[in-house]
């Protein structure tokens, strides 16, 4: 099973260095997190749609993820409404009732607008992160982290983690099958208690075999002199092109623009109820 679905294609997005895409993703996430300005968030969504078109990733390849996100958002929106039906009214300071439901539940324009913003914000952040992952080779990820000044030992730990996920997954499957052969049931048919107990009989061997792996890998790294120097180079590192600089500039501008909306709106929310266009 592919965990990080890197899709090799020949597109301008693929040709950007991993570091550039990482900066772009982080900058846009931060920018979209700072503000609740609907216009700015719509702009970020437009930007990620353009990016998506350039990246040559097909919509069908994202289908499973998109369905998942939609379910997540529906649940989240329902939960927000159930817990705080007047949250929008509190934020925007006005109350325009649209539909009375019952008791403390009434649909207001303010609540709808607030939840629209929460949803849009989500759609602004997710596709960018997704495109980053689909178009960056996993091996390049560690060098990208190191480029943005994360210490190489931590960057290496990240790439080692990604390298060993399939291994740990394989041990998990092997142990799980061995336990199932002994009659341990972890399927949905078993009761909750039996399932938890069953999972524990897999967890213990998994953790202890992982500890053996730690000994083995750290000895191998020590023998090869890992960590002796203050810096290291990366096999997959690439030089920045003019496109990289252009994208980084756009990323920084987005963060700037996001901060600007805070000043213009006098807060994190763009309020169409008290000051229309």
């Amino acid at each position: 099973m592919a965990l990080f679905g890197y899709i090799p294609r020949n597109s301008q997005v693929h040709r950007l260095t991993g570091a550039t895409k990482l900066i772009f993703t982080l900058a846009l996430s931060i920018a979209a997190m700072i503000t609740f300005d609907t216009r700015f968030i719509a702009f970020v969504i437009a930007l990620s749609i353009i990016l998506f078109a350039i990246s040559k990733v097909r919509l069908s390849e994202l289908k499973a993820v998109l369905v998942f996100i939609t379910i997540f958002l529906v649940i989240n929106n329902v939960a927000i409404f159930l817990f705080a039906p007047e949250h929008g009214v509190m934020i925007y300071g006005t109350r325009h009732e649209l539909l009375r439901i019952s008791g403390r539940y009434a649909l207001t324009y303010e609540q709808l607008f607030y939840q629209l913003n929460v949803t849009l914000k989500y759609f602004a952040i997710v596709p960018v992160a997704l495109i980053f992952f689909l178009t960056t080779e996993p091996g390049e990820f560690a060098s990208s982290l190191n480029t943005i000044k994360v210490h190489y030992k931590i960057a290496f730990a990240v790439s080692l983690a990604m390298r060993y996920i399939p291994d740990v997954q394989r041990s998990f499957r092997e142990i799980s099958q061995a336990q199932q052969a002994r009659g341990v049931d972890i399927s949905k048919k078993a009761s909750l208690k039996a399932r938890v107990g069953g999972i524990l009989t897999i967890l213990f061997p998994l953790v202890f075999s992982s500890l053996d792996k730690i000994e083995m890998i750290s000895n191998a790294m020590e023998l090869r002199g890992f960590g002796r120097l203050k810096r290291r180079t990366w096999y997959s590192a690439r030089a920045f092109s003019k496109w990289d600089f252009a994208v980084i500039t756009v990323s920084l501008l987005c963060v700037g623009l996001s901060v600007l909306t805070l000043i213009v709106n006098g807060g994190r929310f763009y309020n169409p109820f008290t000051n229309p266009f």
């Binding site: 965990l3 030992k153 931590i154 290496f156 730990a157 990240v158 080692l160 983690a161 990604m162 390298r163 060993y164 996920i165 291994d167 740990v168 997954q169 998990f172 909750l192 399932r195 938890v196 999972i199 967890l203 998994l206 953790v207 992982s210 792996k213 730690i214 000994e215 890998i217 750290s218 790294m221 020590e222 890992f226 960590g227």
Partner: peptide, 24 residues
């Protein structure tokens, strides 16, 4: 040190696996 780096990586891999595939 090296052992801690590797412990971080393997720990994160196990954390990931449990979070991704073993949840109720």
């Amino acid at each position: 040190n090296i052992k801690r780096i590797v412990a971080t990586a393997i720990g994160a891999a196990v954390f990931f696996l449990l979070a991704r595939f073993v949840s109720i």
